[in-house]
Design a protein around this nucleic acid. Structure first.
Lengths: 213, 213
DNA sequence: GAATCTATTGACAGAACTGTCAACAGGATG
DNA sequence: CATCCTGTTGACAGTTCTGTCAATAGATTC
């Protein structure tokens, strides 16, 4: 087979998206330069405009691809978790947390979010909260829905925060920054999410009960 | 007093920093244009270079000012919290959470962090973790330091996450996005931080005890 | 009031970036 | 092999942005 110099449109688009996504991870959408993408993808820059119309078109395409990819991963992880055996709860929740925006993809997603891109966050969140509440109800039948919501919010925001400044915070607190350490933290989170009882979560905003330790 | 047309260097610098910070909150450091800052500050753009040397000099100055301002606020809040009466614990911790990067300043700080600016996070974190551990020890003398660290990490990351996507997550979960709602969430966090016992936090990574509900 | 200092600005230079266009070239179809 | 389609590119135009420079104009000092 001779060396192909003309790729199919799909191949070309994927190559360009890969290069663009890698750059966005580093410098964000505002820092993306078509010439830099072209150089990284090994082609001349007009070719990029040919495939995506404009710089903005490229950025939107990257955002869409990241969103769809993450949503697909999260959905499958949740479906697996929903069919997991009760004793595999912690592992299942940990898996969902691990699966949500991972590594560089998380950084890209945060960049997009900060830059005002619409995201597929909402549908993912609603799936996750439903999963979490099923788990909590399986532990205690009258589990409080609002507490589930708050816990999911807490965990979600913490995962986002980890993407932004996880390394810095861990340095400051003396935790390592290895992937093992990050996984350890997520597992700790998953356990917290499952193990907390509604008593600990009682909203004492009106009444302030003395909670025993 | 005649209309002043020449400001003192300090006044000019502050006016420029105000304009630049407002722009960075919206579009991030990479999106900051000297001409836009000049327009917002009501002056010609060379004047900005005169005062800050270059575009990068301006961005660094904004980052420094935000860092110093936040560190000062957090430090005073912590000092007040450390002298609070025991029954004011929740209020004191809530106050510290409220005081950490607030509103637009938080967005600016996240932008800076994503863009690779060095931050004053570390010293702030260490102060906060010390404060938190004092509280936890006052509740139970043998409070576990590592659990304190993990809790502080969790709360810190959640606050960062709230800056990035708090509104989106709250929308998805059906919480309002008013300042009242945000304050409510922070208070809930403060209570969680204080009320959690080490039993709930037992690291079951090695042994997986069945924790009663 | 003269001299000095510096905050301020209009005009300009140079670079970088996006997008256009005509031409080229690989691959598919008849 | 001829033709068509389209992926690909070099050259170019227009815009925008950063930074320079010389000149202007408040403010301060003597």
């Amino acid at each position: 087979m001779a060396r192909k110099t003309h790729k199919s449109p799909e191949e070309a688009r994927e190559a360009i998206l890969d290069a663009a996504e890698a750059i966005i991870v580093d410098v964000g959408p505002a820092g993306l330069r078509i010439s830099a993408v072209a150089k990284k993808a090994g082609m001349a820059h007009p070719n990029i405009i040919h495939h995506f119309g404009s710089r903005d078109g490229l950025v939107n395409a990257v955002a869409d691809r990241i969103g769809h990819r993450a949503t697909a991963r999260i959905t499958t992880a949740i479906n697996e978790a929903l069919t997991a055996a009760p004793e595999d709860r912690v592992k299942a929740i940990t898996q969902v947390l691990d699966t949500s925006y991972q590594g560089d993809e998380g950084r890209a997603a945060v960049w997009m979010h900060m830059s005002g891109a619409k995201s597929s966050l909402k549908s993912n969140m609603q799936q996750i909260v439903e999963l979490a509440h099923r788990f909590r109800k399986s532990l205690r039948n009258d589990a409080n829905q609002e507490n589930t919501n708050r816990l999911v919010m807490l965990v979600t925001l913490a995962l986002v925060g980890e993407v932004v400044s996880g390394q810095g915070v861990k340095d400051a607190l003396g935790f390592g920054d290895s992937e093992e350490s990050r996984a350890h933290f997520r597992q700790w989170l998953a356990e917290l999410l499952i193990n907390l009882s509604d008593e600990q979560l009682a909203t004492s905003l009106n009444t302030s009960p003395e909670i025993k330790l």
